[in-house]
Design a protein around this nucleic acid. Structure first.
Length: 543
RNA sequence: GGCCCCUUGGUCAAUCGGUUAAGACAUCGCCCUUUCACGGCGGAGUGAGCAGUUCAACUCUGCUAGGGGUCACCA
């Protein structure tokens, strides 16, 4: 068959050869060893945390090699596209400090010499590439037009999955003659373009993934679609075209792409283009309700949305450091040795990424976040809480603004010391956590068997209460009252014979704490009392 | 179901054929603080199972089991 003639028949409107585009974009002028990475989300909704996770790997890989990290918008699936999702993706990446150095920038102008960075604006290029492949006999038109409603696709897949061990890979249209094709075209039948695969899955080849290491991979034999019948390329072709033209050196992407790697490589070979380096990252999972494991689902898991952590009020650094820790587990050791360095100084490495899928662990995130917040000043905490509250709890924000000094004092309890308290891990917990400082105590954790002693003690201690000037005096006062009521002031004596006392000073303090905060657990009592002041203290004692 | 990937304590994990199998989170206990914490110290808890190779296996090989991914004209 005359493939050139076929190519012209199929793409009469395409005038530029793919070589035109290959030559149009200059090779990047970068120092030796520089890597070019990219993040390429599709605008189908919110930005997945996994995208931040991947972007972090992209960012570090580019930065550590003095390379480039750019962003491209993969908006070739109009059916799933959600308005503004591209903008959200870009904003979210920037929010988490993995702002791409080049490429797509939301509604703002794109930056860089390798654009367009929006796939829907690159249709001419994709077509030129597809045409080229037809012209050398490595791609063919497929007229098996298929319904594309979601249900049809699902039905078709289920049918295929049930009926055979392996799905038929060779497309029937690959054997069409020129005359048959021509008459189809004349009849106005829509067609897709497919790769004419030459692979044999019984044969394998060696491939080195930057994360997984050396692997044997089976050759591809799928005649994958290169151009849908609407003329738009699916990922496979767009990936090759864009990553080649934009000068990507390492494709860092989720492991869900690994099964289609062989097809992508065959496509590069078919074009005679050099293969790129790949790094397939693990997928973040979580525990299923039934005890199983599954990947974080956009639909089921609110924490799959990168914005979830903003709504909860996690400082962005907390999530970033948690994700880095998931990527390179030696990060925490580095962090322990370098508590004050920015995380960007960390020596990140693709090869240190583990190869099994980690569970998202809120315990760990919270711990990291507690440390992050414990290093902040009271002012920074105040600002963090306020910024969060303005968006998510306007009433609380109003209170914060009207009582700025007071709130900063509250946030400064056990803070700005060599060993700061670690209790807050996100801003949304602050209002509840310090509720007793922001209003009256409405409930208490007092235990039933303590009720009598509690009343007795508070009545005695709270009578005409006046807060002493120093913590020492204050504590002596507590001891004094406790002692006269039959509490142990000597811990040793108490431990030797606990039944001889109503309790020890700790118990007395618990009662004061309960009366003032309703909690058994709160920051330093004396500081709380200092901030509350005598009037408020007496009011609460009376209640 | 086919194909691919993975499997060290509840979670994240180090080790790259010879270790008392690190460390972190969570959990429990003790110490410090005569309060809550922070901090310090310690306990419990791990190589999925079975074979094989080897003087020696968590580490290599095979099988089994479990988990995950994928099998779209979605990315």
């Amino acid at each position: 068959m005359d493939y050139k003639k076929l190519a012209d028949l199929l793409f009469p409107e395409v005038d530029k050869d793919f070589n035109y585009y290959i030559n149009k974009y200059k090779k990047r002028n970068l120092p030796a060893g520089a890597e070019v990475t990219r993040i390429a989300p599709s605008p189908t909704g919110f930005l997945h945390v996994g995208t931040i996770y991947g972007a972090l790997a992209d960012y570090f890989t580019a930065k550590n090699s003095n390379g480039v990290f750019y962003m491209r918008l993969e908006d070739t699936d109009s059916k799933r596209e959600v308005a503004n999702a591209g903008e959200i993706a870009y904003d979210m990446l920037c929010y988490y400090d993995v702002c791409p150095m080049e490429g797509y920038r939301g509604n703002k102008a794109q930056i860089g010499d390798y654009g367009d960075y929006i796939q829907s604006k690159r249709m001419n290029i994709y077509k030129a590439f597809a045409k080229h492949l037809v012209s050398i006999g490595r791609a063919f038109p497929c007229f098996c037009s298929k319904s594309e409603t979601k249900q049809d696709i699902i039905d078709r897949r289920n049918e295929q999955l049930e009926n055979s061990d392996d799905i038929e890979e060779k497309d029937v249209c690959r054997n069409l003659t020129y005359e048959q094709i021509e008459s189809n075209i004349k009849a106005g039948k829509p067609f897709a373009i497919r790769l004419l695969s030459l692979g044999n899955p019984d044969k394998t080849f060696e491939f080195t993934d930057l994360i997984k290491g050396k692997r044997q991979i089976r050759e591809n034999n799928k005649d994958i679609v290169l151009l849908k019948s609407n003329g738009i390329p699916p990922y496979s072709l767009a990936h090759l075209v864009d990553d080649t033209l934009m000068g990507t050196t390492i494709v860092i992407r989720g492991e869900e792409w690994y099964p289609s790697l062989a097809a992508h490589l065959e496509l590069f070979d078919a074009f005679g283009l050099p293969r790129l380096k790949y790094a397939h990252t693990p997928v973040i999972c979580k525990n299923d309700e039934n005890g199983g494991k599954r990947k974080l689902s956009k639909r089921k898991d609110p924490e799959a949305d990168a914005r979830y952590f903003i709504t909860k009020g996690y400082p962005k650094t907390s999530l970033i450091e948690y994700l880095i820790n998931l990527l390179n587990s030696d990060f925490e050791l580095w962090r322990a040795n370098n508590p004050d360095l920015p995380y960007t100084e960390f020596k990140f490495s693709l090869s240190k990424i583990g190869s099994n899928n980690p569970m998202f662990d809120f315990n760990k995130l919270n711990d990291i976040s507690k440390t992050v917040i414990s290093k902040m000043t009271a002012k920074e905490v105040y600002n963090g809480v306020l910024t969060w509250a303005k968006e998510f709890s306007p009433k609380f924000a109003k209170f914060l603004e009207e009582n700025r000094n007071y709130c900063e004092k509250v946030f400064n309890i056990d803070r700005e010391t060599p060993k700061p308290r670690k209790d807050i891990y996100c801003w949304s917990m602050v209002e509840e956590y310090y509720s007793y400082m922001f209003g009256l105590v409405t409930s208490t954790e007092l235990e039933k068997q303590d009720e009598a002693n509690y009343k007795e003690f508070i009545l005695a201690y709270g009578k005409n209460f006046k807060l002493p000037k120093t913590k020492e005096e204050w504590f002596n006062g507590v001891k004094q009252v406790a002692s006269t009521l039959g509490y142990a002031t000597d811990n040793k004596a108490y431990k030797e014979n606990p039944t001889a006392f109503k309790g020890n000073v700790a118990k007395a303090c618990e009662f004061i704490r309960l009366a003032l905060t309703g909690r058994k657990n709160s920051p330093d009592l004396y500081e709380i009392m200092t901030i509350l002041g005598n009037d408020e203290i007496n009011k609460r004692f009376k209640i």
